[in-house]
Design a binder for these strands. Structure first.
Length: 409
DNA sequence: TCTGGGGTCCTAGGACCC
DNA sequence: TCTGGGGTCCTAGGACCC
């Protein structure tokens, strides 16, 4: 508490588009967007700044984006590429500080206190970080430097692309005062609305608000909100990258078309369970809680979960639990648009403890399948149920033709 | 032109135990 | 069997982030 601190926040600019531009000059300097590639219900995942000038935004329907920006260049997303690049970013940044907290695939906090005894050194550190990312990876980014995480993040968000923003302690109050509360990380649409109901719209107003009122309304959050309005944040930069910090592993998918056909639903379910199980094993995890998410045609979303006696990471066990959860309240009352499978209460997978029992047998079979898939492609080997669904074309049937072509490339 | 997919954290109610 | 209170675990839902 107290004392000199320098926190840097690194924020990649239009990350997915920037990664695609590395290998595709055709996309550079023009309106471009990366879209989800699973179905015709594709939405914009990331828009280039040129496209944003036309009003194209994340989460916008593809058709809407094209209407706003007729020359928009579209690329199907390549999640593996972004994951690889994310790891390279982390490797580039890691030597700079013993405290690096990667909060998503394209954002990180660094504690630079040690290398920046004053604020001109802090600004140099921010520029060096930006130059390193540009030089080593060829990617644009914005960097904020401030006495805490809250201000560093708000700073990096405030100037894009290629921004450098330094907020010195003496400038902190002025920097936040007239910004909308929504600029604070943690204040979303709902909270913004409720605060507006109290007449609180800016960070300055939030910092000056009556603490009792905030506490009565928002509980312990109210206490933190007032502090945040005043730019106060003592939270340390964590070392958040170790596998120990993973809490859950999940996959979900929206169908090309809504369905209530039990066979189709079970086909998707097994497909999702295979993906989850594979990732659990790759990370050396097993989990004791299995969760199923069902989103109906009207967008109502329900979740159901089940605790298991033992931690599992094979698709058979995960599927069995999910199938029970899916049928728990009887057949789906209406058409389903999305299913999701997630495993939590994770434990490290015991090495060879179960080599000779039933669980061990399942794990060895699963490992053999992983090895075959690694050699012959993602889905060379899978459950019959998934294969049937694939043959029926349920997975990609409705993908737009232009995306399928790009996909094949 | 109906609205993605990956997560984390918090709260509230009920079961169960002492 | 008209009954208090505290603690913990489980499940469901929702807000929020990128």
């Amino acid at each position: 508490v107290g004392g000199h601190r320098v926190v840097l926040h690194l924020d990649m600019n239009a990350f997915f588009v920037s990664v695609e531009r590395l290998g595709n000059p055709h996309l550079r300097g023009r309106p471009a967007a990366v879209v989800g590639d699973a179905s015709r219900r594709g939405i914009v995942l990331t828009a280039s700044y040129e496209a944003r000038a036309f009003g194209v935004k994340t989460a916008m329907l593809l058709a809407e984006a094209r209407a706003l920006c007729p020359g928009l260049r579209i690329v199907a997303s390549n999640p593996d590429k972004y994951q690889d690049m994310s790891e390279r970013i982390f490797e580039a940044v890691r030597p700079l500080s013993d405290r690096v907290e990667m909060t998503s695939c394209d954002e990180a906090y660094l504690d630079a206190t040690h290398d920046a005894p004053d604020w001109s050194a802090a600004e140099r550190a921010a520029r060096d970080l930006q130059a390193k990312i540009r030089g080593e990876l060829g990617l644009p980014c914005s960097v904020g430097a401030a006495p805490n995480k809250l201000l560093a993040k708000t700073a990096s968000e405030s100037k894009k692309p290629d921004g450098i923003t330094v907020v010195r302690p003496e400038d902190a109050a002025g920097f936040l005062r007239d910004r909308p509360v929504r600029d604070i990380c943690g204040v979303g649409a709902r909270l913004e609305e409720q605060l507006a109901g109290l007449g609180v719209r800016t960070c300055g107003q939030l910092g000056a608000a009556d603490e009792e009122t905030l506490y009565a309304r928002f509980g312990i959050w109210g206490h933190w909100l007032k502090r945040m309005g005043n730019g106060v944040d003592d939270s340390p930069v964590a070392r958040l990258c170790d596998p120990e910090s993973v809490k859950s592993v999940g996959h979900s998918t929206t169908f090309p078309r809504n369905t209530r056909d039990p066979e189709v639903l079970k086909g998707y379910l097994m497909w999702l369970c295979e993906k989850v199980a594979r990732r659990l094993r790759a990370g050396g995890f097993a989990g004791r809680t299995v969760s199923l998410t069902v989103r109906y045609a009207d967008f109502e979303t329900v979740g159901r979960q089940a605790g298991l006696r033992e931690a599992v990471n094979d698709e058979g066990a995960i599927y069995a639990a999910c199938a029970r959860l899916l049928e728990k309240p009887g057949p789906p009352p209406r058409a389903v648009r999305l299913l999701g499978v997630s495993v939590s209460s994770l434990e490290r997978e015991p090495e060879n403890r179960f080599l000779f029992d039933e669980l061990g047998k399942r794990r060895r079979a699963a490992a053999a399948v992983d090895a075959l898939n690694a050699r012959f492609g993602q889905t060379a080997v899978g459950r019959a149920r998934t294969k049937t669904a694939e043959r029926a074309g349920v997975f990609k049937s409705a993908m737009p033709a232009f995306l399928r072509r790009r996909d094949a490339r």
